[in-house]
């Protein structure tokens, strides 16, 4: 007798928990999406409509706001182009050279290997902000202010990307394969470029996206490097918009500017989300 009652009780409580879980999940999803929905709505509204109060129905001024923003004093298109160049180049260099670093640690045996690996893991979490003073001074001395190099080249030494790729390499790149390539007479550089790199493609893609996004969003360091108006990136223009005399501004343009800086990333993310979400945990926790 007691068994079936227990079963019923259990299924009722599981059912109740499921209902609660759905309610909480739906609430949190709305909490995450609400702001971006509102942003999209507001980027379609004219200044007059914006001051008239909140609505959840899109209006018709999207193209107009876009045109006004382009013709405004803000160098938006140059900003988008600069951000794209810096983020794209960082993603390429960072993944290529991090794969190379991972390859060096994974494939070869040398005296300093353990030391270097340990060292990279230990500095992995130290933020770049703590060396920014020395960084600015050095870049000034090297005459690299108003140059993209200080924002691109440092991404070659990316401990987190390295660690993720090293983890992935352990499970996908058997040393026997490299051995076989050597027997076939392939030199080390060629083996790396034609055998290791293609095998690492899925992991490289995930890391390329992460590097791209964090470079695209980067605000702190670029403000010290990019001083010329037409070299500035999107986050710097956003900050300038905030510090400009706000009330004089056409809010339709402000919302359009935010839309342009956020939605490209959201769209790419939605297309590739499956790979990204499954890749998040791999680099940091597993093992």
């Amino acid at each position: 007798m007691s068994e079936p009652i227990g079963e019923v009780k259990k299924s009722v409580s599981t059912h109740a928990r499921r209902v609660i879980a759905y309610i909480v999940l739906i609430f949190l999803s709305i909490l995450c999406l609400f702001w971006f929905y509102l942003l999209l709505i507001y980027s379609t509204r004219s200044m007059g409509e914006i001051t008239s109060g909140i609505t959840f129905i899109p209006s018709t001024h999207f193209a107009e706001n876009f045109k006004n923003l382009i013709n405004s004093s803000q160098p938006v298109f140059k900003g988008l182009r600069n951000s794209l160049i810096i983020a794209g180049a960082s993603a390429l260099l960072s993944t290529y050279f991090s794969t190379m670093t991972a390859y060096a640690i994974h494939v070869y045996d040398f005296k300093l290997k353990k030391f270097i690996f340990t060292f990279i893991l230990m500095i992995m979490m130290v933020p770049t902000q703590v060396t920014v003073l020395g960084f600015i001074q050095l870049m000034t001395k090297m005459d690299l202010i108003n140059n993209f190099i200080p924002l691109i080249v440092p991404s070659i030494a990316a401990p987190v990307t390295f660690y993720y790729l090293k983890q992935y390499m352990e499970s996908t790149l058997p040393l026997a394969l490299i051995e076989a390539a050597r027997i076939d007479g392939s030199n080390e550089v060629r083996t790396f470029n034609t055998i290791a790199l293609p095998l690492m493609k899925p992991a490289i893609a995930v890391q390329a996206i992460f590097t791209f996004v964090s470079s695209w969003n980067n605000y702190f360091i670029p403000t010290y490097i990019l001083k010329k108006e037409d070299m500035k990136t999107i986050p710097i223009l956003i900050a300038q918009l905030r510090s400009a005399d706000y009330l004089k501004f056409d809010m339709g343009q402000v919302y359009m500017m935010i839309t342009l800086s956020i939605f490209p990333v959201i769209i790419v993310y939605l297309i590739l989300s499956r790979h990204i979400v499954s890749g998040i945990a791999l680099g940091s926790v597993k093992g």
Partner: peptide, 25 residues
């Protein structure tokens, strides 16, 4: 020896863009 060669980019960039700035900070 290729282990060292492949580490050159990481180490060089780390020294210039991280370690020197840290020391001068």
């Amino acid at each position: 020896k290729w282990g060292y060669i492949f580490l050159i980019p990481f180490v060089a960039v780390f020294l210039v863009f991280n370690l020197i700035p840290l020391i001068s900070t």
